[in-house]
Design a protein around this nucleic acid. Sequence first.
DNA 1: TATTCGTGGAT
DNA 2: TATCCAAGAAT
Length: 378
Amino acid sequence: MGNFYGFGYGMHGMRIFVPMTRTRWTPPPGFARKLINWSRHLDRPLPWREEQEPYRIWLSEMLLQQTRAAQAIPYYHRFVEQYPTVQELAQADIAEVLRLWEGLGYYNRAHFLHQTARIVTSTRGGQFPDTYEGLLALPGIGPYTAAAIASFAFGRPHAVVDGNVIRILARLTGLEGDPARPEVRREFQARADTLMGRSDPAAFNQAMMDFGAVQCVPRQPDCPSCPFAGFCMAWNTDRVNAFPAKKTRRTLRHRYFLFLVLKKGSRTWLVRRDRGDVWRGLFTFPLHETDAPVDDPEALARSGWPFLPPMRPMTISGPWEQVLTHQHIHAWILTASFPRTTAIPPEWMAVEIRDLPNFAFPRILRRFLNDPRTSLIP
DNA sequence: TATTCGTGGAT
DNA sequence: TATCCAAGAAT
Protein backbone atom coordinates (compact mmCIF):
# COMPACT_ATOMS: atom_id res chain seq x y z
CA MET A 1 0.00 0.00 0.00
CA GLY A 2 1.19 3.50 -0.73
CA ASN A 3 1.04 6.54 1.51
CA PHE A 4 -2.30 7.96 2.41
CA TYR A 5 -3.09 11.48 3.35
CA GLY A 6 -5.79 12.97 5.52
CA PHE A 7 -7.50 16.11 4.38
CA GLY A 8 -9.37 18.95 5.88
CA TYR A 9 -12.56 19.62 3.99
CA GLY A 10 -11.91 23.25 3.24
CA MET A 11 -13.63 25.73 1.09
CA HIS A 12 -13.18 25.98 -2.62
CA GLY A 13 -9.52 26.02 -3.56
CA MET A 14 -8.35 25.46 -0.03
CA ARG A 15 -5.26 23.36 0.33
CA ILE A 16 -5.32 21.62 3.63
CA PHE A 17 -3.63 18.32 3.97
CA VAL A 18 -1.79 16.46 6.61
CA PRO A 19 0.44 13.59 5.54
CA MET A 20 -0.37 10.56 7.60
CA THR A 21 -0.54 6.84 7.32
CA ARG A 22 -3.92 5.28 7.02
CA THR A 23 -5.45 2.01 6.21
CA ARG A 24 -8.78 3.31 5.08
CA TRP A 25 -10.05 5.97 2.76
CA THR A 26 -12.67 8.37 4.11
CA PRO A 27 -15.39 9.50 1.73
CA PRO A 28 -16.11 13.22 1.55
CA PRO A 29 -19.48 13.90 3.21
CA GLY A 30 -22.35 14.81 0.92
CA PHE A 31 -20.39 14.00 -2.23
CA ALA A 32 -23.25 12.38 -4.17
CA ARG A 33 -25.65 15.20 -3.39
CA LYS A 34 -23.13 17.84 -4.42
CA LEU A 35 -22.20 15.94 -7.55
CA ILE A 36 -25.80 15.52 -8.69
CA ASN A 37 -26.42 19.15 -7.88
CA TRP A 38 -23.43 20.10 -10.00
CA SER A 39 -24.82 18.09 -12.90
CA ARG A 40 -28.13 19.94 -12.88
CA HIS A 41 -26.49 23.00 -14.41
CA LEU A 42 -24.95 20.95 -17.16
CA ASP A 43 -26.04 21.21 -20.77
CA ARG A 44 -24.84 18.05 -22.41
CA PRO A 45 -27.63 16.67 -24.59
CA LEU A 46 -27.28 13.00 -25.48
CA PRO A 47 -29.96 11.00 -27.30
CA TRP A 48 -29.96 8.22 -24.68
CA ARG A 49 -30.14 10.57 -21.72
CA GLU A 50 -33.34 10.13 -19.73
CA GLU A 51 -34.06 7.05 -21.83
CA GLN A 52 -36.22 4.49 -19.99
CA GLU A 53 -36.34 1.59 -22.41
CA PRO A 54 -33.81 -1.15 -21.50
CA TYR A 55 -33.24 -2.03 -25.15
CA ARG A 56 -32.15 1.47 -26.05
CA ILE A 57 -30.04 1.85 -22.94
CA TRP A 58 -28.30 -1.43 -23.66
CA LEU A 59 -27.79 -0.43 -27.29
CA SER A 60 -26.25 2.90 -26.32
CA GLU A 61 -23.94 1.26 -23.81
CA MET A 62 -22.71 -1.26 -26.35
CA LEU A 63 -21.98 1.54 -28.80
CA LEU A 64 -20.22 3.57 -26.10
CA GLN A 65 -17.69 0.96 -24.98
CA GLN A 66 -14.28 2.58 -25.54
CA THR A 67 -15.99 5.09 -27.80
CA ARG A 68 -16.61 8.79 -27.41
CA ALA A 69 -20.21 9.87 -27.14
CA ALA A 70 -19.87 12.15 -30.15
CA GLN A 71 -18.80 9.26 -32.32
CA ALA A 72 -21.56 6.96 -31.11
CA ILE A 73 -24.47 9.36 -31.58
CA PRO A 74 -25.05 8.93 -35.34
CA TYR A 75 -24.74 5.15 -34.97
CA TYR A 76 -27.30 5.17 -32.17
CA HIS A 77 -29.82 6.98 -34.37
CA ARG A 78 -29.24 4.60 -37.27
CA PHE A 79 -29.60 1.50 -35.09
CA VAL A 80 -32.77 2.72 -33.42
CA GLU A 81 -34.27 3.52 -36.80
CA GLN A 82 -33.19 0.27 -38.42
CA TYR A 83 -34.01 -1.92 -35.40
CA PRO A 84 -36.67 -0.25 -33.25
CA THR A 85 -36.95 -3.35 -31.04
CA VAL A 86 -34.64 -6.07 -29.83
CA GLN A 87 -36.72 -8.58 -31.79
CA GLU A 88 -35.98 -6.82 -35.06
CA LEU A 89 -32.30 -6.72 -34.23
CA ALA A 90 -32.39 -10.42 -33.41
CA GLN A 91 -33.98 -11.24 -36.74
CA ALA A 92 -31.40 -9.29 -38.72
CA ASP A 93 -28.50 -10.91 -40.52
CA ILE A 94 -25.14 -10.40 -38.80
CA ALA A 95 -23.71 -9.04 -42.06
CA GLU A 96 -26.32 -6.32 -42.04
CA VAL A 97 -25.61 -5.49 -38.41
CA LEU A 98 -21.91 -5.23 -39.20
CA ARG A 99 -22.62 -2.95 -42.13
CA LEU A 100 -24.47 -0.63 -39.78
CA TRP A 101 -21.58 -0.89 -37.32
CA GLU A 102 -18.95 -0.19 -39.98
CA GLY A 103 -16.49 2.51 -38.99
CA LEU A 104 -17.07 2.24 -35.26
CA GLY A 105 -14.36 -0.34 -34.63
CA TYR A 106 -14.12 -3.18 -32.11
CA TYR A 107 -16.36 -5.31 -34.27
CA ASN A 108 -16.67 -8.02 -31.65
CA ARG A 109 -19.14 -5.66 -30.04
CA ALA A 110 -21.44 -5.99 -33.04
CA HIS A 111 -21.28 -9.78 -32.79
CA PHE A 112 -22.05 -9.63 -29.06
CA LEU A 113 -24.86 -7.18 -29.73
CA HIS A 114 -26.45 -9.60 -32.15
CA GLN A 115 -25.92 -12.62 -29.89
CA THR A 116 -27.45 -10.90 -26.91
CA ALA A 117 -30.41 -9.70 -28.98
CA ARG A 118 -31.05 -13.30 -30.00
CA ILE A 119 -30.71 -14.61 -26.45
CA VAL A 120 -33.02 -11.98 -25.02
CA THR A 121 -35.55 -12.55 -27.79
CA SER A 122 -35.52 -16.32 -27.84
CA THR A 123 -35.18 -17.17 -24.16
CA ARG A 124 -36.59 -14.14 -22.36
CA GLY A 125 -39.44 -12.99 -24.54
CA GLY A 126 -37.59 -9.83 -25.45
CA GLN A 127 -37.19 -8.70 -21.86
CA PHE A 128 -33.72 -7.79 -20.59
CA PRO A 129 -32.66 -9.11 -17.17
CA ASP A 130 -33.36 -6.50 -14.50
CA THR A 131 -30.47 -7.45 -12.22
CA TYR A 132 -26.76 -6.75 -12.38
CA GLU A 133 -25.93 -10.46 -12.29
CA GLY A 134 -28.45 -11.33 -14.96
CA LEU A 135 -27.12 -8.65 -17.25
CA LEU A 136 -23.52 -9.64 -16.60
CA ALA A 137 -24.21 -13.11 -17.96
CA LEU A 138 -24.99 -11.78 -21.43
CA PRO A 139 -22.39 -11.57 -24.22
CA GLY A 140 -20.60 -8.25 -24.41
CA ILE A 141 -21.87 -7.09 -21.05
CA GLY A 142 -19.13 -6.70 -18.44
CA PRO A 143 -19.07 -4.98 -15.05
CA TYR A 144 -19.38 -1.48 -16.45
CA THR A 145 -22.22 -2.17 -18.87
CA ALA A 146 -24.13 -4.29 -16.37
CA ALA A 147 -23.95 -1.49 -13.80
CA ALA A 148 -24.97 1.10 -16.37
CA ILE A 149 -28.05 -0.82 -17.52
CA ALA A 150 -28.98 -1.92 -14.00
CA SER A 151 -28.95 1.69 -12.81
CA PHE A 152 -30.28 3.54 -15.84
CA ALA A 153 -32.99 1.06 -16.80
CA PHE A 154 -33.92 -0.46 -13.44
CA GLY A 155 -32.74 2.01 -10.81
CA ARG A 156 -30.52 -0.52 -9.12
CA PRO A 157 -27.66 0.72 -6.93
CA HIS A 158 -24.57 -0.33 -8.87
CA ALA A 159 -21.93 2.29 -9.46
CA VAL A 160 -20.38 2.38 -12.91
CA VAL A 161 -16.60 2.28 -13.09
CA ASP A 162 -15.41 3.49 -16.45
CA GLY A 163 -12.47 5.59 -17.55
CA ASN A 164 -14.12 8.74 -16.24
CA VAL A 165 -14.83 7.30 -12.80
CA ILE A 166 -11.32 5.87 -12.51
CA ARG A 167 -9.82 9.24 -13.30
CA ILE A 168 -12.10 11.07 -10.86
CA LEU A 169 -11.55 8.64 -8.02
CA ALA A 170 -7.82 8.32 -8.61
CA ARG A 171 -7.41 12.06 -8.31
CA LEU A 172 -9.99 12.70 -5.64
CA THR A 173 -8.99 9.86 -3.33
CA GLY A 174 -5.37 9.44 -4.36
CA LEU A 175 -5.67 5.87 -5.48
CA GLU A 176 -2.37 5.14 -7.18
CA GLY A 177 -2.49 1.54 -8.36
CA ASP A 178 -2.81 0.30 -11.91
CA PRO A 179 -6.56 0.12 -12.64
CA ALA A 180 -5.94 -2.95 -14.76
CA ARG A 181 -5.09 -5.00 -11.69
CA PRO A 182 -8.12 -6.78 -10.24
CA GLU A 183 -7.52 -5.79 -6.61
CA VAL A 184 -7.12 -2.15 -7.63
CA ARG A 185 -10.21 -2.40 -9.77
CA ARG A 186 -12.12 -3.77 -6.81
CA GLU A 187 -10.99 -0.80 -4.73
CA PHE A 188 -12.22 1.62 -7.38
CA GLN A 189 -15.54 -0.20 -7.43
CA ALA A 190 -15.77 -0.12 -3.64
CA ARG A 191 -15.07 3.61 -3.48
CA ALA A 192 -17.52 4.33 -6.28
CA ASP A 193 -20.21 2.33 -4.49
CA THR A 194 -19.41 4.12 -1.25
CA LEU A 195 -19.71 7.51 -2.88
CA MET A 196 -23.00 6.56 -4.51
CA GLY A 197 -24.39 5.71 -1.11
CA ARG A 198 -28.14 5.90 -1.04
CA SER A 199 -28.41 8.54 -3.74
CA ASP A 200 -30.32 8.04 -6.98
CA PRO A 201 -28.20 5.43 -8.81
CA ALA A 202 -29.04 6.63 -12.33
CA ALA A 203 -28.52 10.29 -11.48
CA PHE A 204 -25.29 9.53 -9.65
CA ASN A 205 -23.79 7.41 -12.42
CA GLN A 206 -24.80 9.86 -15.10
CA ALA A 207 -23.38 12.75 -13.09
CA MET A 208 -20.08 10.96 -12.49
CA MET A 209 -19.51 10.36 -16.19
CA ASP A 210 -20.59 13.89 -17.05
CA PHE A 211 -18.22 15.19 -14.42
CA GLY A 212 -15.36 13.23 -15.93
CA ALA A 213 -16.21 14.38 -19.42
CA VAL A 214 -16.65 18.04 -18.59
CA GLN A 215 -14.75 18.93 -15.41
CA CYS A 216 -12.28 16.24 -14.37
CA VAL A 217 -10.92 15.83 -17.91
CA PRO A 218 -7.76 13.85 -18.69
CA ARG A 219 -5.51 16.75 -19.58
CA GLN A 220 -5.26 20.20 -18.05
CA PRO A 221 -8.44 20.13 -15.99
CA ASP A 222 -9.63 23.47 -14.65
CA CYS A 223 -9.15 22.51 -11.02
CA PRO A 224 -9.67 26.00 -9.52
CA SER A 225 -13.25 25.85 -10.77
CA CYS A 226 -13.86 22.34 -9.40
CA PRO A 227 -16.40 22.07 -6.60
CA PHE A 228 -14.38 19.24 -5.05
CA ALA A 229 -10.94 20.85 -5.21
CA GLY A 230 -10.99 21.36 -1.46
CA PHE A 231 -10.72 17.65 -0.80
CA CYS A 232 -9.06 16.44 -3.97
CA MET A 233 -5.92 14.52 -3.12
CA ALA A 234 -4.27 15.12 -6.47
CA TRP A 235 -4.98 18.84 -6.55
CA ASN A 236 -3.96 19.41 -2.97
CA THR A 237 -0.65 17.66 -3.48
CA ASP A 238 -0.11 19.28 -6.88
CA ARG A 239 -0.08 15.90 -8.62
CA VAL A 240 -3.12 16.17 -10.87
CA ASN A 241 -1.17 14.94 -13.86
CA ALA A 242 0.07 11.90 -11.98
CA PHE A 243 -3.42 10.40 -11.75
CA PRO A 244 -4.59 7.98 -12.81
CA ALA A 245 -1.59 5.67 -13.17
CA LYS A 246 -0.47 5.62 -16.77
CA LYS A 247 -1.19 2.58 -18.81
CA THR A 248 1.73 0.57 -20.06
CA ARG A 249 2.60 1.65 -23.54
CA ARG A 250 1.64 -0.61 -26.35
CA THR A 251 3.98 -1.90 -28.99
CA LEU A 252 2.92 -1.56 -32.59
CA ARG A 253 3.10 -4.55 -34.86
CA HIS A 254 3.54 -3.75 -38.52
CA ARG A 255 1.61 -5.80 -41.05
CA TYR A 256 1.79 -5.59 -44.81
CA PHE A 257 -1.33 -6.45 -46.76
CA LEU A 258 -1.82 -6.95 -50.47
CA PHE A 259 -5.46 -6.77 -51.50
CA LEU A 260 -6.49 -8.05 -54.91
CA VAL A 261 -9.40 -6.39 -56.69
CA LEU A 262 -9.97 -8.95 -59.37
CA LYS A 263 -12.56 -7.87 -61.90
CA LYS A 264 -14.52 -9.95 -64.34
CA GLY A 265 -17.18 -7.94 -66.10
CA SER A 266 -19.38 -6.33 -63.46
CA ARG A 267 -18.16 -8.61 -60.69
CA THR A 268 -15.32 -8.93 -58.21
CA TRP A 269 -14.48 -11.24 -55.31
CA LEU A 270 -14.55 -10.78 -51.56
CA VAL A 271 -13.55 -12.83 -48.53
CA ARG A 272 -14.97 -12.68 -45.03
CA ARG A 273 -12.63 -12.04 -42.10
CA ASP A 274 -12.54 -14.87 -39.60
CA ARG A 275 -12.41 -14.69 -35.82
CA GLY A 276 -9.08 -14.46 -34.05
CA ASP A 277 -7.86 -11.42 -35.94
CA VAL A 278 -8.79 -7.83 -36.64
CA TRP A 279 -12.00 -6.88 -38.40
CA ARG A 280 -13.85 -10.06 -37.44
CA GLY A 281 -16.78 -10.67 -39.75
CA LEU A 282 -16.00 -7.81 -42.09
CA PHE A 283 -15.36 -8.26 -45.79
CA THR A 284 -12.16 -7.52 -47.65
CA PHE A 285 -10.78 -8.18 -51.06
CA PRO A 286 -8.70 -11.36 -51.20
CA LEU A 287 -5.67 -10.75 -49.03
CA HIS A 288 -2.04 -11.77 -49.16
CA GLU A 289 0.00 -10.84 -46.09
CA THR A 290 3.71 -10.51 -45.53
CA ASP A 291 5.68 -9.54 -42.45
CA ALA A 292 8.24 -7.45 -44.34
CA PRO A 293 7.84 -4.09 -46.09
CA VAL A 294 6.66 -4.44 -49.66
CA ASP A 295 8.99 -3.01 -52.29
CA ASP A 296 7.49 -4.61 -55.39
CA PRO A 297 3.75 -5.10 -54.90
CA GLU A 298 3.13 -6.56 -58.33
CA ALA A 299 5.85 -9.17 -58.07
CA LEU A 300 4.58 -10.14 -54.65
CA ALA A 301 1.04 -10.35 -55.97
CA ARG A 302 2.07 -12.63 -58.79
CA SER A 303 3.85 -14.95 -56.38
CA GLY A 304 0.93 -14.85 -53.95
CA TRP A 305 -1.66 -15.51 -56.63
CA PRO A 306 0.14 -17.55 -59.29
CA PHE A 307 -2.99 -17.88 -61.39
CA LEU A 308 -2.87 -14.20 -62.38
CA PRO A 309 -2.31 -13.88 -66.12
CA PRO A 310 1.32 -12.88 -66.61
CA MET A 311 0.92 -10.39 -69.42
CA ARG A 312 -2.07 -8.51 -68.10
CA PRO A 313 -1.37 -5.08 -66.54
CA MET A 314 -2.36 -4.25 -62.99
CA THR A 315 -3.26 -0.99 -61.36
CA ILE A 316 -1.32 -0.52 -58.14
CA SER A 317 -2.60 1.73 -55.37
CA GLY A 318 -0.84 2.37 -52.10
CA PRO A 319 0.47 2.17 -49.64
CA TRP A 320 -2.73 2.85 -47.71
CA GLU A 321 -2.08 3.22 -44.02
CA GLN A 322 -4.21 2.54 -40.96
CA VAL A 323 -3.04 2.56 -37.37
CA LEU A 324 -4.96 0.31 -35.00
CA THR A 325 -4.46 -0.05 -31.28
CA HIS A 326 -1.75 -2.69 -31.57
CA GLN A 327 -1.08 -2.78 -35.27
CA HIS A 328 -0.02 -0.60 -38.14
CA ILE A 329 -1.48 -1.81 -41.41
CA HIS A 330 0.31 -1.02 -44.65
CA ALA A 331 -1.86 -1.97 -47.59
CA TRP A 332 -1.32 -2.17 -51.30
CA ILE A 333 -4.38 -2.62 -53.46
CA LEU A 334 -3.94 -4.20 -56.86
CA THR A 335 -6.63 -4.11 -59.48
CA ALA A 336 -6.61 -6.57 -62.36
CA SER A 337 -9.04 -7.81 -64.96
CA PHE A 338 -9.33 -11.52 -65.30
CA PRO A 339 -11.29 -13.15 -68.12
CA ARG A 340 -11.33 -16.66 -66.73
CA THR A 341 -12.73 -17.86 -63.43
CA THR A 342 -10.84 -21.12 -63.16
CA ALA A 343 -8.53 -21.59 -60.22
CA ILE A 344 -10.42 -19.08 -58.11
CA PRO A 345 -10.15 -20.30 -54.50
CA PRO A 346 -13.48 -21.70 -53.29
CA GLU A 347 -13.69 -19.37 -50.28
CA TRP A 348 -13.69 -16.34 -52.53
CA MET A 349 -17.17 -14.94 -52.94
CA ALA A 350 -18.20 -13.37 -56.24
CA VAL A 351 -20.19 -10.16 -55.85
CA GLU A 352 -21.47 -7.41 -58.08
CA ILE A 353 -19.23 -4.36 -57.90
CA ARG A 354 -22.24 -2.07 -57.65
CA ASP A 355 -23.21 -3.93 -54.45
CA LEU A 356 -19.95 -3.15 -52.65
CA PRO A 357 -21.56 -0.31 -50.66
CA ASN A 358 -23.74 -2.93 -48.97
CA PHE A 359 -20.86 -4.88 -47.45
CA ALA A 360 -19.10 -4.00 -44.22
CA PHE A 361 -15.50 -3.08 -44.94
CA PRO A 362 -12.63 -1.99 -42.72
CA ARG A 363 -12.06 1.73 -42.80
CA ILE A 364 -8.91 1.40 -44.86
CA LEU A 365 -10.82 -0.30 -47.69
CA ARG A 366 -13.81 2.01 -47.45
CA ARG A 367 -11.44 4.91 -47.91
CA PHE A 368 -10.09 3.22 -51.02
CA LEU A 369 -13.58 2.58 -52.39
CA ASN A 370 -14.70 6.15 -51.71
CA ASP A 371 -11.62 7.68 -53.30
CA PRO A 372 -12.65 9.30 -56.60
CA ARG A 373 -9.41 8.11 -58.21
CA THR A 374 -10.37 4.54 -57.52
CA SER A 375 -13.45 4.73 -59.75
CA LEU A 376 -14.34 1.16 -58.90
CA ILE A 377 -17.89 1.95 -57.90
CA PRO A 378 -19.52 4.06 -60.63
C1' DT B 1 -3.45 -11.76 -15.98
C1' DA B 2 -1.63 -9.69 -20.04
C1' DT B 3 -3.18 -9.05 -24.63
C1' DT B 4 -6.09 -8.08 -28.09
C1' DC B 5 -9.82 -6.50 -30.07
C1' DG B 6 -10.77 0.15 -34.25
C1' DT B 7 -11.36 4.49 -35.02
C1' DG B 8 -11.03 9.30 -34.56
C1' DG B 9 -10.78 13.62 -31.82
C1' DA B 10 -7.91 16.45 -28.93
C1' DT B 11 -3.60 18.44 -27.69
C1' DT C 1 3.75 15.24 -35.58
C1' DA C 2 3.29 12.00 -31.98
C1' DT C 3 0.75 10.59 -28.31
C1' DC C 4 -3.08 9.77 -25.57
C1' DC C 5 -7.22 7.58 -24.84
C1' DA C 6 -12.43 7.24 -25.05
C1' DA C 7 -19.53 5.34 -21.10
C1' DG C 8 -14.71 -2.06 -21.76
C1' DA C 9 -15.01 -7.06 -22.59
C1' DA C 10 -13.26 -11.40 -23.80
C1' DT C 11 -9.81 -14.61 -23.81
